[in-house]
Design a protein around this nucleic acid. Sequence first.
RNA 1: GGCCCCGUCGUCCAGAGGCCUAGGACGCUGGGUUUUCAACCCAGAAACGCCGGUUCGAAUCCGGUCGGGGCUGCCA
Length: 436
Amino acid sequence: MKLRIAPSPTGHLHIGNARTALFNWLYARANNGTFLVRIDDTDTARSSEEYINDIVKNFKWLGIDWDEGIQVGGPHGEYKQSLRFDRYREIAESLLSRGLAYEDEGAIRFKVPNENSIVFDDITRGSMKFELSDVEDFIILRSDKSPTYHLASTVDDIDYEITTIARGEDILSSTPKHILLMQALNADVPTFCHLPLLFGPDGKKLSKRHGDTSVSSFRDMGLLPEALFNYMCLLGWAPGNDLEIFDKDLVIQKFDLANVLPNPAIFDTTKLLWMNGQYIRNTSDDDFTLSALEKISQDLDRELFEKEISRIKKILPSVQERIETLNDLTPQIKFLLDEPFEVNQEEWDSVNSSEGQSYLMSIREIFKSLEDFSLSNIENIMREELKNKDTKPKIGFQITRVSVTGTKVSPPLFESIYALGKDAVLARLAESIEKL
RNA sequence: GGCCCCGUCGUCCAGAGGCCUAGGACGCUGGGUUUUCAACCCAGAAACGCCGGUUCGAAUCCGGUCGGGGCUGCCA
């Protein structure tokens, strides 16, 4: 069993293509088959090397690897159609000389017999039938002698011995043309599977009209590849038992193209975001620390100082519990950075009160003489002082939060104070008290 | 217009004739927890497009209808 994905490098890797690649990859892996990636760049004007790199990079990021094809090589050259134009011309010429095609204003058209019909079994859709009287003679070689998609793709599928073609439903009506070409070339007709399209929220084929739908844009959103992978699996397929969060191994074990739904799915970012949060929470502490520090450094566009790293590490467990994407990280730990610190004036005003001020001054004094600045000591002291002064938690804690973190919304208060460290906390409290 | 595909909560999926007064998840609403924001827990609203047929019995099979979508390029 051999499957392929054949993206056109006329844009960034599109999420719809990624999903098609994923299902092909899964089917190949589930059946101990071969997965091949080739580049369909017959449209030389719109294709570019930059996009090939983007496609390759994002397949790898998603964890989709291939056994044959672009970059990894194999018995068929470089797996780029732009390098095989001679081969396609040769085929077009042979069809011409056999009377199966004809010249039309410099281009070559395949002659579609207008009797009979084409019948084939589609894995997800069952028996398909197209009357040939509905199929037009189609161009296989353009007047500039470059092959069209129909020709190049079909020849490659034959030459590379593809056994199963799973592609988007948008090409379903072109399938009779491809079967006709294969028959004309005396090749075995592979098994077809037309996967349901991905729709935007408006119920139309997902495209640039729906904003940036490239895989790289999802990475830029701070998504984990495992989460996107998991989410894409659920678009048109499910492993059963209402299982929703699962890893690669489980999918490979259960996946079958025959169980893919024939109806289109709307790509809903909301659930994807939720799922990403689940994956973040399920990440081990060590792994999360590693990727978090890297991400923060990336966002800041600089290396982190040792002091910052040790502070951040202390708060990370709390942050991991409450973020949805990696992009939520840096804003949450911003107050721990060794950078000019500023309190949001408006928010300060909204929590400021004489009762709060009094609490602030008291805990500063207590903190000052506290030798063991531990998390539990901080919490005990702050709660005790609340009781002493008969102050409500909200009054005492919120003003402290704004004073120490700069805003009303932050990671948990005691953890934030503990992470920031005694010296910086005292300094910030002093600063707030000064301007009271 | 022609050809083709599709049709279960707003969304993703479960359901492959009786187990369905249709199940799970996201989202939404209400509640709990609570020092913020989250996370977490509990509860709730929410769907088989419609009409026929087959059958003792249909979300499940068939036909029609309506609705949505794709293709109709010397793009892929």
